[in-house]
Design a protein around this nucleic acid. Structure first.
Lengths: 213, 213
DNA sequence: TCCTTATGCTAACGGTCGTAAGTTTACTTC
DNA sequence: GAAGTAAACTTACGACCGTTAGCATAAGGA
């Protein structure tokens, strides 16, 4: 838990118009602390300031609150997840089946590559902690919507192409996402568990009601 | 966040041999704080002591650490979940199909009735926080095993009776639990989301590979 | 060159936390 | 009634936290 007890990196002051750059550095430092310590409680005003190499009150130029930093971290993480899903879709060919697997595996890969971030994104330390802070409920309400839509669309393509059968495409999409989330979250939480090797593909195939090839 | 700023409930001291009763009171108070504030960070040595009506250091008679309280809370929660699953199984008849649904719905009901507890049980604030504390990794390793076995057995009965088909019963059981966990966890985290009404039965039926009746 | 102003810092306050050391209270036994 | 001891308390220390108020410094246009 010791974070540079006395680390004066002699940080150069930003140029006149580039003060906002410090905001990115703050968020990046917060993400670093989260990834290293694995505990969102490690993201504190002072710890972030230490990591960046600035004085703690200097953060108030860029964030009104400490929860505002957390919100920025989570927003950035969701943007990264969305970008990763889009990249996977762009790299895939036109087969709806392969596109569905691509986006699902990209989702799972994000959670596996950044378990602490995933845990924080969906851990729900929000509703309680943001009482009386600058973070409003609407800031956090629609955070994962775009990512879920990408998944829903990919499943819809499969249904349209006749590769997937199901009585209710929307409910199936929700179920598929819930299954992915269960796997992703549990993988992010437990150190090492003997998962069946093909557990991901099994869940995707089953929940998407994919027909045998 | 104000917890009895000065609440002297004039707690009577326990009788000579019943000092261990305070331990139960401490755990109960910790659970109360968790359920009310919804944040495991609300379980602190001093807040628990205030709630019980004792001085903070008095806790050290019964717990070596603050993490030890958290461990006790989680252990108790897992015991409650297990008891709830067994109760549901005992109340069910002999039809394997109905027994499977009974245990699955009991699982989901626990998460819905005690969302903060569920979040804490599976939230994984463990691996990081127990560094250098009295809580060892083995204390937390096999916490949910019994509950998962109850689920696995219920699915196994369905397979044996021919009500469920699947190529790998163990993998299917894991997948079923992951699906339940995804739904339970997400329900415990989000305030209100328009879930498809029959989402639970859909996931259970699909992941268990239940045959049409 | 000087003045404005964005940028970041120092100092400080009040609060909470975990924990150690030593002490008081009251039950039980003799 | 005396003694022993379990049960719980008081006091205190050091650390970290979020936040406020005011100050220094340097960039860049006039």
């Amino acid at each position: 838990m010791v974070n540079e007890p006395a680390a004066p990196p002699a940080r150069p002051r930003n140029r006149r118009g580039e003060g906002g750059r410090l905001r990115e550095e703050i968020v990046a430092a917060a993400v670093e602390l989260l990834d290293e310590n694995g505990d969102e409680g490690a993201i504190t005003l002072r710890s972030v300031a230490r990591r960046v190499g600035i004085a703690a009150p200097s953060i108030y130029r860029h964030f009104p609150d400490q929860p505002a930093i957390m919100l920025a971290v989570v927003q950035q993480a969701f943007a990264q997840l969305e970008a990763q899903l889009r990249t996977a879709l762009d790299a895939a060919d036109d087969d709806p089946r392969r596109r569905l697997f691509a986006v699902c595996h990209a989702y799972l890969r994000f959670a596996q590559d950044h378990p602490q971030r995933y845990r924080t994104m969906f851990g729900g330390v929000w509703m309680p902690a943001l009482q009386g802070t600058s973070v409003t409920r609407s800031d956090v309400a629609s955070l994962g919507d775009t990512c879920i839509r990408l998944l829903t669309d990919a499943l819809g393509e499969c249904v349209t192409a006749g590769h997937a059968g199901g009585t209710d495409p929307h409910a199936d999409a929700v179920a598929l996402w819930l299954g992915l989330h269960g796997l992703a979250h549990q993988r992010a939480v437990t150190v090492a568990y003997p998962w069946p090797p093909d557990i991901a593909d099994r869940m995707i195939t089953t929940l998407a009601h994919l027909r045998d090839t």
